[in-house]
Design a protein around this nucleic acid. Structure first.
Length: 481
DNA sequence: TAACGTTTATA
DNA sequence: ATAAACGTT
């Protein structure tokens, strides 16, 4: 084997895969035998994401840079068009290869395909890997040879598949002779648009690869057994809490899959099944996004573009501010604003109220979640909203209107979640409920001493009827045409 | 991963 | 009288 400095360096182009373990592009870069230079680029695609995601990404970059320093390496940060940056860096460092893990949303794919062909025509090695999914979207096919459109058969297809074993993190780093210059992370101000006052509970989230692995271990140890039973209860700590780690790639789905399958592969272990099904929902979302990238912005079922959706406006603003007058919805919207996360069950409740009772377009909700979710994921967010609205594949039928009251009675029977996030009218409001008012922009003009809205922006009974009428109207108009 | 109004079964 | 089952949206 030749000495390390006989082989030209490789650039490891990191994006939403900010980890050292089970990182296929990193593994391949090390296998080349030469030095490896990790780089993260703030380009227009990365800048076009939501404020909470950029804030979360900044924290993750800081954690990764620290981990790399622990191995005697550095994380090189650059700003600009990705291709220009990579070309410059290749020139500066003498690198003759650029390796990365694939992304699957439309804008990233368009960029990556252009970068790959340009680098190759420069004469560089340019290779991409699967670091984000259990299975590449195009490798899962129905009997007819097409993509799956319904979750259950998709689950059956992947449940018995063998998942690639995770790759160990490198124990030492092949560093170059000298490191190229890096921008200063602080100077980028990636958190500048977080637009929330202090203290913000989002800042309590544990960030970084080590935290992700610890969270997984704690979940498996403490909560997995009760997961199927308790996962819909926002008043219990029943979920894995891994979504924000997955969103920036601090942990991979393969690591999660392997950790829940201590024995053998090929059959899903019983206690883990319900949990893995949720992981596979993420996988399904990417499967769909790969085959229909326009799903991120347009109705997956095009006939829904003729539905009389309402525009963004005052009503939607009340929804964003957690002032609809429906406690389950408002609690959820406040949890989102102040923690950057929202319990899955209450995502469905809040989204359902916006798109059904309020008749507001799912894109309005999608945009708000994109801007405020610390665990924002392009595929899951699009699928989730289209599922609720009824415009997506395997969507809830439109007439499946949730009653937020009934849902709250079922899943928050003691009102613990409600009281954690709603302060108005409480003698001793919960600290988290008060934190919302400190986080909320001044312009919202909210104070914990306000009266809680004494009637909802749209009544439950009227809203349900209005939604069903609009649906019938839209449907008969279509049938006539 | 629904809710609701109505009918039918069971005590 | 109440629960379970059913059909509709």
């Amino acid at each position: 084997m030749p000495a390390a400095n006989d082989i030209s360096p490789a650039l490891l182009w990191l994006r939403r895969d900010l980890r050292l373990a089970d990182n296929p592009a990193l593994h391949a870069a090390i296998e080349r035998g030469g030095p490896v230079i990790p780089v993260w680029i703030l380009d227009p695609v990365a800048e076009a994401t939501g404020a909470a995601h950029r804030w979360r990404m900044e924290g993750s970059l800081r954690a990764l840079a620290r981990d790399l320093e622990g191995l005697g390496a550095r994380l090189i940060l650059r700003r600009g068009a990705a291709l220009d940056v990579l070309r410059d860096l290749a020139k500066e460092t003498g690198a003759d290869a650029v390796l990365w893990n694939r992304l699957y949303d439309g804008p990233a794919r368009a960029r990556d395909e252009a970068v790959k062909s340009a680098l190759r025509s420069d004469g560089l090695e340019a290779r991409s890997f699967n670091g984000a999914l259990l299975h590449e979207p195009w490798t899962v096919e129905t009997g007819q040879g097409g993509p799956y459109k319904v979750y259950t058969p998709y689950w059956r297809a992947v449940a018995e598949r063998v998942v690639h074993e995770p790759i160990a993190a490198p124990s030492r780093w092949p560093s170059p002779q000298g490191w190229p210059a890096s921008d200063a992370l602080d100077a980028w101000g990636m958190a500048a648009d977080m637009r929330r006052g202090a203290p913000v509970l989002a800042e309590r989230v544990e960030i970084g690869e080590r935290a992700a692995l610890q969270r997984l271990a704690a979940f498996l140890e403490e909560d997995l057994r009760a997961y199927a039973e308790e996962r819909d209860r926002p008043d219990r700590e029943a979920t894995s809490g891994l979504s924000h780690h997955l969103a920036v790639g601090e942990i991979s789905p393969r690591q999660i899959w392997a950790a829940t399958q201590p024995r053998r592969q090929g059959a899903v272990a019983k206690p883990a099944q319900k949990f893995l099904q949720e992981l596979v929902w993420r996988e399904f979302a990417y499967h769909l996004l790969h085959h229909s990238p326009e799903m991120a912005t347009d109705n997956w079922r095009p006939e829904w573009s003729a539905f009389p959706w309402r525009e963004d406006g005052e009503a939607a603003e009340a929804w964003r501010r957690g002032r609809t007058g429906i406690e389950a919805v408002d609690a959820a919207m406040r949890e989102l604003f102040v923690t950057g996360r929202m319990h899955n069950r209450f995502r469905m409740i809040a989204a359902n109220y916006l798109t059904k009772h309020m008749l507001v377009h799912w894109k309005v909700g999608e945009a708000w979640f994109r801007d405020t979710l610390v665990d924002w994921d392009p595929a899951s967010n699009a699928l989730g909203w289209q599922w609720v609205a009824g415009s997506g594949p395997d969507a809830a039928p439109y007439f499946r209107v949730f009653n937020p009251q009934t849902q709250a009675e079922k899943f928050d029977p003691d009102g613990v979640y409600r009281d954690r996030f709603i302060a108005e009218g409480r003698a001793k409001p919960h600290a988290d409920a008060l934190a919302f008012f400190e986080a909320a922009p001044r312009a919202w003009g909210l104070s914990p001493g306000d009266r809680y809205p004494d009637k909802p922006i749209v009544g439950l009974k009227e809203g349900r009827q209005q939604a069903l009428d609009a649906y019938q109207d839209w449907k008969s108009r279509r049938d006539a045409a």
